[in-house]
Amino acid sequence: MEHDVNGLHHVGHIVHDLDQAMECYRRLGFTVAAPAYPVLPAVPGGPAEPFGVANAHVHLQRGFVELVAVLGDGGHVPDGARPIPLRVPDDKVAGLREAIGATAANITSFLRRFQGVHIMFADTSGLDGVAARLTAGGDGHGGVHDIQRPVETPTGTTMEPARYLEISEPGLPPGSVPEGRVGFAENAPLTTPLPTGHPNGATGLVGCVLCVADPALPGVERRYGRYFGRATRSGRADVTVVAASALGDLLPGERPPALPAFAAYAVAVRDLEAAGKLLRGNGVPVVRTGPAELFVPAAAALGVAIVFRQDG
């Protein structure tokens, strides 16, 4: 089972204010790509207008972090954001607006729970096989979707092919599980390499912590075991499922904002001592949890603890 999981693809950090989030991530030592947002006519032939969600990416050598904010309902277009025109035939505009609107509604519902990470996708090179495996195991999903995703490169925005699948649990909106949005993604090789250098030396997305109510722990471990391979470490996706009563043992001082919740994610860095020095120099609090690991508390990182782990 584990052979179809190549690690974490990305986590999605949902925020109220994308400008604030980008500044926060820069203080954390990350390089944040220019934000972007889709534009689409409200009616066929009408003027294009911002719609859905705006996002910005922290690209790593392995995986990425997506910062997401909803446009409208009090949201705003972030400073310096690039519009991404969505070009579809006139007879497809209404359907696309409905699909994007549903995604934005999902994101809004996640944000009402708390500001933080609500999205976690594993990377795979065999998405059709994953879909078949989930179906055979009785796990619901929305099928494989083929899309063109905007990618910010040093020479501008390019559209790159990608495929994804969202897991669905009974009784919840399509594409949702109790902790948010979980699935698999498969990307074609990029035609233009992305810049992945960061002042903090981050090299890859290497882990995620899902915190659940104590009585729910066995069931969630089984569920994630079906999704990704092993129950508590989820194979090579490295998702740690932890009971709420034990979160403080793993990350001292942390409390989950809700249950269930992605309470933390981890990135590998080339030099942990240098990363810690940069963080402290930027006025960011850090907590040391061992010789090869430290973390920034959720209170200092917009609702999610960020673990920095020595690479290798």
Rank of each mutant, 00 (worst) to 15 (best):
N282F: 02
G303P: 01
E179W: 14
M120A: 14
G129A: 12
H118T: 15
A246H: 14
G126C: 07
V117R: 02
H59R: 11
A104V: 05
A243Y: 10
L210G: 00
P189W: 08
T240C: 09
D128A: 12
Y227L: 12
R133C: 00
G229M: 09
T108P: 01
P38M: 04
G63H: 01
F308R: 00
R280E: 14
S176K: 14
E160D: 05
G29M: 13
R27F: 13
G129P: 06
G219R: 08
F30C: 06
L272N: 03
H198F: 03
A244K: 03
R236M: 08
T196D: 13
L251K: 12
A81G: 14
V239D: 07
H3W: 12
H10D: 12
T103L: 11
E152Q: 02
L302H: 07
G281I: 07
T289S: 00
G180M: 02
A48K: 06
D249G: 07
A202I: 12
V296I: 04
A102V: 09
A264F: 02
A185Q: 10
V177P: 05
P218M: 05
R82V: 07
F64V: 08
G225N: 09
V284G: 04
R181G: 07
L247T: 10
S234G: 06
Q310D: 01
G229S: 11
K92P: 02
I306E: 14
I167K: 10
G207N: 02
H13A: 07
A102Y: 14
P174Y: 07
P41W: 06
A36H: 15
P154C: 00
I84T: 09
H9N: 15
T31I: 08
A33E: 05
V151D: 03
P50W: 06
A216H: 10
A213S: 13
F51I: 07
P291Q: 06
T155M: 15
A136Q: 13
D214R: 01
F30Q: 09
A292G: 13
I14A: 05
V182I: 13
F228K: 10
A42Q: 08
D79H: 04
A275R: 01
C211Q: 10
V53R: 13
P218L: 10
G46L: 01
G276E: 09
T232H: 01
T155G: 15
D238P: 02
P35N: 02
I84E: 11
V39Q: 07
T31D: 09
L67Q: 15
L86P: 04
V93I: 14
E166Q: 13
L205C: 08
P257F: 12
V93E: 15
I147R: 00
L172N: 03
A81P: 14
A99D: 12
A305Y: 14
G204W: 05
V88D: 11
M22F: 11
P252I: 12
M159V: 07
G143T: 02
L172C: 15
T124L: 11
G129K: 12
C211I: 02
N55W: 07
V65A: 00
V65I: 10
S125D: 08
G75P: 06
A301M: 00
V43H: 04
P154H: 03
G138M: 09
H198N: 05
G175E: 04
G281V: 09
Q115G: 01
H141E: 04
G175F: 04
G183K: 02
G235I: 03
V182K: 03
A246N: 11
F114V: 00
F262M: 05
A34C: 12
H118E: 15
H3N: 14
T232R: 04
G219W: 04
G290W: 10
H3Q: 15
T153N: 10
